[in-house]
Computed example of a mutant assay.
Amino acid sequence: MRYFVFIMSTLAERHQLILLRLKEEGNVNVLELCRDLKVSSVTIRKDLKLLEDKNLLFRTHGGATAGNPYTSDRHVSEKEKLHADEKTEIGAVAAELIEPNDCVIIGSGTTVLSLARNIKPKGNLTVITAALNVATELNQHPEIEVLVLGGMLRKSSSSATGVYAERALDDFACSKLFIGVDGIDLEFGLTTTHVEEARLNRKMMATAQKTIVLADSSKFGRRGFGRICALDEIVQIITDSGISDHMRKSLMDMGIEVTIVA
């Protein structure tokens, strides 16, 4: 929602608006608050510091969020149990985008694993992946040719990363890349918790004609350690109905197709 301009002089009134906006939108921006409240950036940053000291928000570069924006690495077996129903629905919708005789890349993560489980090949299909669990899932289909990228195996994700996997992609061209991420931030872009995985994802993006992100709504407003890319480099995001209206509209304003599963 868009707020009308306030002219506020008291600390309590400013804090009330900041917390209200956080509740509605999930994040606030220093420059927008300065404009709406007619105060300096120094004043707003002090306000955000006071609210953070009370554990009411988390400060970020250029603003603040309602929840902790930083995500930590977890083992794939633990992540698979989180938001399982949403991931299944996201994977089913993503599988419908695969065309007969397609050639696609599938990244690593539990949401793209749900995609692999929902694929019903129409004609032949070639899949390139660095994720062992994705490769194992797809290998049961005689119509699917699976090319597994080699490299250093990450124990937490059971997927390969590193220069060998990146170099192998130089020899291919694919129609689509399906990736999962650990964080989607309007300013910082797409992120993962592992910097080598972020590098491999960027290489995968260069190999594919378009990038489709599969992410449940808990990933929005979060940041991982390794930055993959800016949001304007992706074509589509498939997520669930937990995404906020503000986030959905912001993404669509960037030209990104947002598909929300039931």
Results as ranks from 00 to 15, higher is better:
residue 123 G to S: 05
residue 123 G to Q: 06
residue 124 N to L: 11
residue 124 N to W: 09
residue 124 N to R: 14
residue 124 N to A: 14
residue 124 N to V: 09
residue 124 N to G: 13
residue 125 L to D: 00
residue 126 T to P: 04
residue 127 V to D: 01
residue 127 V to R: 05
residue 127 V to E: 02
residue 128 I to R: 01
residue 129 T to G: 06
residue 130 A to M: 09
residue 130 A to N: 15
residue 130 A to L: 05
residue 131 A to V: 02
residue 131 A to W: 03
residue 132 L to T: 01
residue 132 L to Y: 08
residue 132 L to M: 14
residue 132 L to E: 05
residue 133 N to F: 05
residue 133 N to T: 09
residue 133 N to A: 07
residue 134 V to A: 02
residue 134 V to S: 01
residue 135 A to V: 06
residue 135 A to Q: 05
residue 136 T to V: 14
residue 137 E to L: 03
residue 137 E to S: 13
residue 138 L to H: 08
residue 139 N to I: 12
residue 140 Q to A: 11
residue 140 Q to F: 13
residue 140 Q to H: 13
residue 141 H to Q: 09
residue 141 H to N: 12
residue 141 H to F: 13
residue 142 P to G: 07
residue 142 P to H: 11
residue 142 P to M: 11
residue 142 P to N: 12
residue 143 E to L: 13
residue 143 E to T: 10
residue 144 I to H: 03
residue 144 I to L: 09
residue 144 I to A: 05
residue 144 I to D: 03
residue 145 E to V: 07
residue 145 E to Q: 12
residue 146 V to P: 00
residue 146 V to Y: 07
residue 147 L to D: 00
residue 147 L to K: 11
residue 147 L to M: 09
residue 148 V to P: 03
residue 149 L to Q: 03
residue 150 G to I: 01
residue 150 G to A: 12
residue 152 M to N: 11
residue 152 M to W: 08
residue 152 M to H: 12
residue 152 M to G: 06
residue 153 L to G: 09
residue 153 L to D: 06
residue 154 R to P: 06
residue 154 R to H: 07
residue 154 R to C: 01
residue 154 R to A: 06
residue 155 K to V: 12
residue 155 K to Q: 15
residue 155 K to H: 14
residue 155 K to D: 15
residue 155 K to S: 15
residue 155 K to L: 15
residue 155 K to W: 10
residue 156 S to C: 10
residue 156 S to M: 11
residue 156 S to H: 09
residue 157 S to D: 08
residue 157 S to A: 15
residue 158 S to L: 15
residue 158 S to I: 13
residue 158 S to Q: 15
residue 158 S to V: 13
residue 158 S to E: 12
residue 158 S to D: 12
residue 159 S to T: 04
residue 159 S to H: 01
residue 159 S to M: 04
residue 160 A to G: 00
residue 160 A to Y: 05
residue 160 A to D: 07
residue 160 A to Q: 00
residue 161 T to C: 08
residue 162 G to V: 07
residue 162 G to H: 08
residue 162 G to F: 05
residue 162 G to I: 07
residue 162 G to C: 12
residue 163 V to N: 13
residue 163 V to P: 00
residue 163 V to I: 15
residue 164 Y to G: 06
residue 164 Y to K: 10
residue 164 Y to E: 15
residue 164 Y to N: 14
residue 164 Y to S: 15
residue 165 A to P: 02
residue 165 A to K: 02
residue 165 A to T: 03
residue 165 A to V: 02
residue 166 E to A: 14
residue 168 A to I: 10
residue 168 A to T: 11
residue 169 L to Q: 02
residue 169 L to V: 00
residue 169 L to F: 05
residue 169 L to M: 04
residue 169 L to G: 00
residue 170 D to T: 11
residue 170 D to I: 00
residue 171 D to P: 02
residue 171 D to F: 11
residue 172 F to R: 01
residue 172 F to A: 01
residue 174 C to Y: 03
residue 174 C to F: 01
residue 174 C to Q: 04
residue 175 S to W: 03
residue 175 S to Y: 06
residue 175 S to F: 00
residue 175 S to E: 09
residue 176 K to D: 07
residue 176 K to T: 01
residue 176 K to R: 12
residue 176 K to L: 08
residue 176 K to P: 00
residue 177 L to A: 03
residue 177 L to M: 08
residue 177 L to C: 04
